[in-house]
Design a protein around this nucleic acid. Structure first.
Length: 520
RNA sequence: GCAUCAGUAGUGAAAUGGUUAUCACUCGUGCUUCCCAAGCACGCGAUCCGGGUUCGAUUCCCGGCUGGUGCACCA
């Protein structure tokens, strides 16, 4: 953690980002006019544009570029049986006890295991209370008496319909819908292993203590993919040759125990040494690396942490968290879990519905490899990674072009002499061409450049007096603050090529020459 | 959930048990042929919520909400 807030002194990066978010309509607290509600945030126009652009990028990468991944959209409220089967009802119900004196809270089962070595996980509260009393377990902190254990449920519950007793829960992860609709999707798509089902949507967790802006939320958004694979073929990924040499930044369990840093390894090295459990996990480690880089986050700034055994969820046989480094600490943004056949088996048992795939006369319950992305945390990570300050009087976001909230601002140099009319005409022309433009004629031109930079719009077109004469406009680029003068009829094409990274800004200035204002 | 600090225009700050709560920037309108938050004029805009003490509370007290930090928690 860095620095303190003391009047007029330096602010943390987090405080700075939050300030810009409020000011520029990126993110703000839910129900703010009523004092807000912890753990909930709303995206403003700029934040929502970022979110949509990131989701598009994810869909392109993890669904559209694959030959057999199908996207669904499931309900956010699910009946209780689902979570009895999935294990969330047991595992999500943490039994807690509190010290009567110092008020410290403890997970009862963890405390008992640690103090007297007895495993009580899954036992009733009364039984656990008995173990505490029989063994005279006291508060490890101050040695005083503990309270009887209480359940704390991390899932939001509700009643379905008018009768009580039909309990539903807001899903704590999007993944369960995928297992529930597995049979329908695999049949309707006539899917053959390996195939994937993806979902982008909201999930809910009643966190005890929401913290750190968009990091720990009670309502969150996920982009999840469940890849279903024949368990005998987990080490026969069809594209092995394409990704085996991809380098990833990896923090092994052993390195964590020694306190070492993450190091770069290739996927092949990871597989050969057993650090990466199978090729499908390796594939997604490589894919996740590429995706995060495309968000403008540098390869050395994030790493995969192989979770320690006690941190690994009840359903998972191996878990790799993608953690991104920032001045105040790391933000965990993506998980990669090897869920094996846990979920399908549990749902098969509970629902009495066959959840296998028939192939070559064999009945296979596929194993599941699950990359799971936290949308909100990634938005935060993008903001942090793109935030810039320096050679100008305002701050800006250096978003990758594909994430920018708008592609271009169209601005008349002044609000008179026919300039607004000309600029307006160009603005509508660009819209017709499918360019995501926004019009701004308020205030002086420099102020409009600043505002545009501040929400990370890469380009500004200025329609000036010369435009009236010769049908050219200036095009300004955010990062260099340099301009070129280009013919109006080519503007749409030029913007498109720049936004798709077909033509770089350097190439553009070479072709058109840098425009210097003819002062006075 | 515990402890602790904090909450004043959009943002950042100032002040006060008593007339109309101050300032900067932002924002809006106008002027200035004006290409990187220039200048001038005018304008909009705030004491987190509830209760108590008091003739009077933004200020003092209590409770809540929200945020920072530490602990705990994070399937």
């Amino acid at each position: 953690m860095t620095k303190k807030k003391t009047k007029g002194k330096s602010k943390t990066l987090q405080e700075t980002i939050i300030e810009v978010c409020l000011k520029r309509g990126i993110v703000f607290p839910t129900a703010e006019i009523y004092g807000g509600s912890a753990g909930f945030f709303e995206l403003g126009p700029v934040g929502e544009a970022l979110r949509q652009n990131m989701i598009d990028l994810w869909r392109d990468t993890f669904i559209k570029s694959e030959d057999n991944v199908y996207e669904i959209s499931g309900s956010t409220i699910l009946p209780e049986k689902v979570f009895e089967a999935s294990g969330h009802l047991d595992s999500f119900n943490d039994p807690l006890t509190q010290c009567q004196n110092c008020k410290s809270m403890y997970r009862v089962d963890h405390l008992i295991l640690e103090q007297v070595g007895i495993k009580v996980e899954g036992q009733s509260l009364d039984d656990m209370w008995k173990v505490i009393q029989d063994n005279r377990i006291k508060c490890p902190n101050c040695k005083h008496d503990l309270s009887p254990p209480k359940q704390f449920n991390m899932m939001f519950s509700t009643n379905i319909g008018s009768t009580s007793g039909n309990i539903g829960y807001l899903r704590p992860e999007t993944a369960q819908n995928i297992f529930l609709s597995f049979r329908r999707v695999s049949h309707s798509m006539r899917a053959k292993l390996p195939f994937g089902i993806a979902q982008i949507g909201r999930a809910y967790r009643n966190e005890i203590s929401p913290r750190n802006f968009l990091v720990r939320l009670r309502e969150l958004q996920q982009m999840e993919l469940e890849m279903f694979v024949d368990p005998d073929l987990l080490n026969s990924h069809p594209r092995w040759d394409d990704f085996q040499d991809t380098e990833i930044n990896f923090l092994s369990q052993e390195a964590q125990e020694k306190g070492d840093k993450a190091t770069f390894i290739t996927i092949k090295e990871g597989i050969d040494s057993g650090l990466i459990v199978n090729q499908y996990l390796g594939y997604f480690l490589a894919m996740e690396t590429g995706f995060i880089e495309s968000l403008g986050i540098k390869k050395g700034k994030f790493f995969f942490r192989h979770l320690l055994d006690h941190e690994t969820a009840h359903y998972s046989k191996a878990n790799y968290d993608l953690e991104i480094e920032f001045p105040f600490g790391v933000v965990e943004c993506v998980g990669l879990a090897y869920r094996t056949d846990y979920d399908l088996r549990k749902h098969q048992e509970k629902s009495k519905t066959k959840l296998h795939i028939s192939e070559d006369g064999k009945k296979i319950i596929p194993h599941v490899v699950e990359p799971s992305f936290g949308v909100d945390r990634l938005i935060y990570a993008i903001l942090l990674a793109s935030y810039r300050e320096g050679d100008r009087d305002w701050t800006w976001f250096d978003f990758p072009n594909s994430l920018a909230p708008w592609e271009v601002v169209v601005a008349p140099l002044q609000r008179k002499d026919g300039l607004p009319e000309g600029a307006r005409e160009l603005f509508w022309e660009l819209k017709d061409q499918g360019i995501d433009a926004i019009y701004d004629q308020t205030g002086q031109i420099g102020k409009r450049y600043a505002r545009s930079d501040e929400i990370g719009i890469p380009l500004v077109i200025t329609y000036d007096y010369d435009s009236l004469e010769d049908d050219t406009v200036t095009l300004r680029e955010r990062n260099s603050m340099k301009q070129v003068r280009i013919p109006i009829q080519d503007v749409g094409t030029i913007i498109r090529e720049f936004m798709l990274d077909i033509v770089s800004w350097d190439e553009m200035t070479k072709e058109f020459g840098e425009f210097i204002k003819n002062s006075k």
